[in-house]
Design a protein around this nucleic acid. Structure first.
Lengths: 205, 205
DNA sequence: TAGATTGTTAATCGATTAACAATC
DNA sequence: TAGATTGTTAATCGATTAACAATC
């Protein structure tokens, strides 16, 4: 469990393994092998064994990996064996969809607040949430000790909103705005921009 | 322009460069350097020069890169100097948001059809679109010669829907369902699962 | 011109794969 | 036991960085 020099590229594959294992569990499977898991996720068996073995010896020769056990271990490693509170910033259609998404809770996350700076949106209901004024965002996030934000504001507002989030103590940003963000080294950003993903595929068409 | 042995990891960075250049152009900038572009996107200047030089000599010593010229070249390389028709499969909240997203058209894509298999959704209007029955999907896509799909169906339906899309001639799938897809080698898949992105960050929290 | 910055080479660094002893 | 599969090592493969001549 040499927890501190694991390459990010390995960390990035663990959630994919975890997702596959949970899918297998739903099908009633009890064990799997690096071979089978690899076929499921499109990664070589050798790499899967190598990745997993960075964190401990979770398999058994001859029989492979216990799905519930490996699932538990991965959840522990990724720190999703708990519930993380998340804020949504930007109450447009995408923020709306994320706020109501049912797929977070059984994977370690729950949306707890939604913000926007548009007076015509502030106060609106989104499911159980009321859209709050961005003006109170920094205090609200800091007081609730929230560390994760999903950013669905327009590109032009993304950097300035991020700066505020960092002031508020946010350490992880899932950025849906189509723009690169500048953040301090102790803050993580992940990017979701459908267009960059599409453009990456058109190259091959 | 050795167009055929470019590593995928380089191809994957080009859309990010392109996005940054378009942002710079909007600010009225006319030229940039590998240094400046690198700071913008968080990549070393050396790597940016190396990546770009795989495709030609697009810069000038002493002055850097012309933003409009490099933009044109990247659009050409990525084949987004044209408009790609895209289908949305799954008319839930996310499919809804994607269907109405205004950010596609100026970056090479436009949604042209939306499908669902839920009778309560078929026939509904989403902006200018009418949700069509998935039963007619294969024919409709093949007849329109569409190559790109965005998949926003539930996880349980994702693989079978993908199989139909491939039958229909789809060659690129942007998969929002939280599951790995099995596809032939000539079909590309990109994954967008907010939870895997979040889990990749919680590791460091 | 002098200063700046590219394109490219060589060196370094890191990731993946193949292979197999250990062992369930 | 015999067969299967892990964990790990060494070899290979690929990506990144540093450095600098070329040149705008």
């Amino acid at each position: 469990m040499n927890a501190d020099k694991i390459p990010d590229i390995i960390v990035g594959r663990l959630p994919v393994y975890l997702r596959a294992l949970q899918g297998m569990a739903e099908k009633g499977m009890k064990t799997t092998s690096s071979q089978e898991l690899g076929e499921n996720v499109g990664i070589s068996a050798a790499q899967i064994r190598k990745d997993i073995s960075q964190f401990g010896e979770f398999g058994k020769q001859g029989t492979g990996y216990s799905i519930p056990y490996l699932t538990d271990k991965l959840r522990e490693i990724l720190k999703v064996n708990r519930m993380w509170d998340v804020v949504v910033v930007g109450a447009g259609e995408l923020g709306h969809a994320l706020s109501r998404y049912q797929g977070f809770t059984n994977r370690g996350f729950r949306v707890v607040m939604v913000f926007d700076n548009d007076p015509s949106k502030i106060g609106n209901k989104i499911g159980e949430f009321t859209v709050e004024d961005s003006a109170s965002m920094v205090d609200r996030i800091r007081n609730a000790n929230i560390k994760i934000a999903m950013l669905t504001v327009p590109a032009a507002a993304a950097q300035s909103t991020t700066d505020k989030l960092i002031q508020a103590g946010i350490k992880a940003v899932l950025n849906y705005a189509p723009v690169s963000l500048n953040v301090p080294a102790n803050v993580r950003v992940q990017y979701i921009d459908p267009v960059t993903h599409l453009q990456r595929m058109t190259y091959y068409l």
